[in-house]
Design a protein around this nucleic acid. Structure first.
Lengths: 180, 180
DNA sequence: TATTGTTATACTCTATAACTATA
DNA sequence: TATAGTTATAGAGTATAACAATA
């Protein structure tokens, strides 16, 4: 149950958070913020200690620019990752794409159909498995993706401009330690 | 236009990608993957060079566990970040929350109403601005959040177990360089 | 005139159950 | 029986336009 004996045990267990309050330059008002006072600057230092919060904010920040720069190619992030994976893995199946990119099969169906109707990919019979379908990028799809991947890579460098190449490499490796 | 002169200029501009193919242990089949062959292992090495992809995968991985562990508190990621920010910033306004957490005002309305009807927050008149409303965590809300923040912090340590404390600190700092 | 909070609404994304064809 | 692909659909998340009250 949520509420539990929170009031009593809470103070002791929140030591890490309480410690935080004493340190560093104050982001919020210096004095104790009593009920009737306005907040001048919002203090988000606790959230900034959470990896999930920071990873999500960073991802959304990059995706915002991604959507803008890749719009001319008619590719959103998922379309892009699917096309890129097909490009680099000719004959890959839908099921393999789902496993590799953490997608659900029903959500891939319309996406694949859209890419096929745009002439970017082709569906060929699978050599071993009669149930499966191998996906292949068409010459048009390949040409598009060479351009799209270059655009994506450029945008990412631009968006991570505050990082040195070494820091960028470190960041990629550390993120992969979380989800891989 | 998307397709442009992609076929001709594409090869030269994709040098970084082509370079990638020669290096490192092969993730996919060793020989050139001809049209009729099946894919044994999916190669996602290009996507893994993109910060947006890695940040999103890492964030979703953490959020998955977050949803599970925070469900007993009736808090999803956005509820949690809103409650936490109110907790640490008594009297904060909706507009300030939107700016700090990158939310849109219309999407915050129902969320605030829900938290209020659960008795976790109170809305008090703003001291200076008659239009605005100051948000405050109730004792019940405060007690809940002390527990919830501890749960969240614990879960994050668990999910980033492959990282040393120093690496974890580095990762947080580097992510903030992207979105802040 | 600009801003806070709100309503209504549309659009996208994600998730679940169930069906078919093949292994 | 299990798996690949599909269908239909529900739910959650995110977005825009427009309004009343106050600055």
């Amino acid at each position: 149950m949520p509420t539990q004996s929170a009031a009593s045990s809470g103070k002791a267990r929140a030591s890490a958070i309480e410690d935080l309050k004493g340190k560093a330059p104050r982001a919020a008002t210096a004095k104790k913020p009593s009920a009737g006072l306005a907040v001048d600057k919002v203090d988000t230092r606790y959230l900034q200690t959470l990896m999930g919060y920071n990873a999500r904010r960073a991802a959304l920040s990059i995706i915002e620019l991604f959507l803008e720069r890749l719009a001319p190619y008619g590719l959103k992030p998922v379309d892009f990752s699917v096309m890129s994976t097909i490009q680099h893995n000719p004959g890959v199946t839908s099921r393999q794409l789902c496993a590799a990119l953490n997608l659900l099969p029903p959500n891939l169906v319309g996406l694949i159909q859209s890419l096929e109707s745009r002439g970017l990919i082709e569906r060929k019979p699978h050599p071993h498995d009669g149930r499966a379908v191998g996906l292949h990028a068409t010459p048009k799809g390949q040409a598009l993706m060479v351009q799209a991947e270059q655009t994506a890579s450029d945008l990412e460098i631009e968006k991570t401009a505050k990082l040195t190449p070494a820091q960028r490499k470190t960041l990629l490796a550390l993120l992969q330690k979380i989800y891989l």
